[in-house]
């Protein structure tokens, strides 16, 4: 994987650069749309299919992923100059795994009901390619604050996509949003839940539609 480096730019701006300069805002906003981890980089697809049956577990998953991307990016970026190059992947993995276990433990203590549902998937954050991808491509070559912003951006980019997918899957698959029965509330009690949306195939279809809309809008062409 190649290392993107934005540090050259820093030579000109140096010291005086504000915490949220234009360049830094771009680090956050890029992954939301133009460089979205799921729809453009096609990373983290597996969990996008697995956890998006309902909104609530998806939201928890999104928050967990944001937490892990931000802090693993921060830690790896701080350590980037002392991490031995030959074992860097395993070091990244150890940091990510520790953070994920921490999230899992906290969920079990304070949100037991949710932990029962997302428990398995939280463990799978370790294998989420987005996190390893950002560590390898960004945090290893950039300063801590930039890396935190990159983590936030990637985390949000991932989150809004899986939340969008979950919204449609729960709406059509279970007829509800956050377990609130939408169709019954508007008086359509005979709504027949769509079983396809409950299975991972439904996520594939919605994800495909999102990618289609996004590429049409941005005029993205496959190189």
């Amino acid at each position: 994987m190649s290392t993107e480096t934005v540090e050259q730019l820093e030579v000109e701006v140096k010291e005086t650069e504000s915490l949220l300069s234009k360049r830094r805002r771009k680090i956050i906003s890029d992954p939301l749309d133009d460089d979205n981890p799921i729809t453009i980089q096609v990373l983290g697809i597996c969990s996008a299919l697995a956890v998006t049956v309902k909104m609530m577990p998806t939201l928890v998953m999104a928050l967990a992923v944001i937490f892990v991307t931000v802090f693993s990016n921060l830690i790896i970026s701080i350590l980037r100059n002392v991490i031995p190059n030959r074992v860097r992947i395993i070091v990244q993995l150890a940091v990510v795994a520790s953070l994920v276990i921490l999230v899992d433990q906290v969920l079990r203590a304070y949100l037991y009901d949710v932990a029962k549902v997302v428990g398995v998937y939280v463990g799978l954050i370790i294998t989420n390619c987005i996190i390893m991808g950002r560590l390898e491509a960004f945090a290893m070559g950039n300063k801590p604050w930039d890396s935190v912003l990159d983590g936030l951006g990637s985390g949000f980019g991932y989150s809004w996509i899986i939340l969008a997918v979950a919204f449609f899957r729960e709406l059509f698959g279970s007829g509800s949003i956050f377990d609130f029965k939408v169709f019954e509330a508007i008086g359509w009690s005979s709504y027949q839940a769509n079983g396809l949306m409950v299975s991972p195939i439904g996520a594939f279809i919605i994800l495909g539609l999102i990618i289609w809309v996004q590429r049409y809008k941005n005029g993205y062409v496959e190189h």
């Binding site: 150890a94 433990q105 906290v106 079990r108 304070y110 037991y112």
Partner: peptide, 28 residues
């Protein structure tokens, strides 16, 4: 480096696990 990293991460996780144990037992 690897040994130090393992000790630090392992230590942190142990502290977290021990510290959160009472809450987890209560939740269960």
């Amino acid at each position: 480096f690897s040994v130090a990293l393992t000790v630090v991460l392992g230590g942190l996780l142990s502290i977290a696990a021990v510290g959160l144990k009472p809450m987890q037992t209560k939740a269960i």
